[in-house]
C-alpha cells in the first residue's frame, strides 16, 4: 500500500502521554485546512489516543501503521 502524501512531519518518538496528542494539536494549529501531518510515535497508548483525539476534534485520521515499534499516523486538518 502506498504511503499517503503528507505536508509536514512531527516526531514524537520516545514521548509519552499526553505529549503526542498535545504536540499534534500545536503543529496542526499552525497548518492550513486540508493539509496532512505525518506523526511518528512509540507510545502504544497513542493508538487509542489519536483515534479519540481525531474523533473529538473532527480532524481526519487518514491512516495508521505500525512497524518496528513505531506508530505512524496521517492526520488531515479539517
Amino acid at each position: 500500500m502506498s504511503e499517503p502524501f503528507f505536508d509536514q512531519e512531527l516526531d514524537c518518538q520516545g514521548l509519552l502521554c499526553p505529549l503526542p496528542v498535545l504536540k499534534t494539536k500545536q503543529v496542526l494549529d499552525s497548518m492550513g485546512t486540508g493539509k496532512v501531518l505525518r506523526l511518528l510515535a512509540t507510545d502504544p497508548g497513542s493508538v487509542s489516543d489519536m483515534e479519540a483525539w481525531t474523533r473529538q476534534t473532527g480532524n481526519e485520521l487518514l491512516d495508521h501503521r505500525e512497524g518496528d515499534g513505531v506508530y505512524t499516523y496521517y492526520v488531515r486538518k479539517v
Binding site: 502521554c17 499526553p18 483525539w53 473529538q56 476534534t57
Partner: peptide
Amino acid sequence: FILASTAAAMGW
C-alpha cells in the same frame, strides 16, 4: 494538568 491540557487540545 494531563487532563486539562488534553481536553483543551481536544477543543473542550
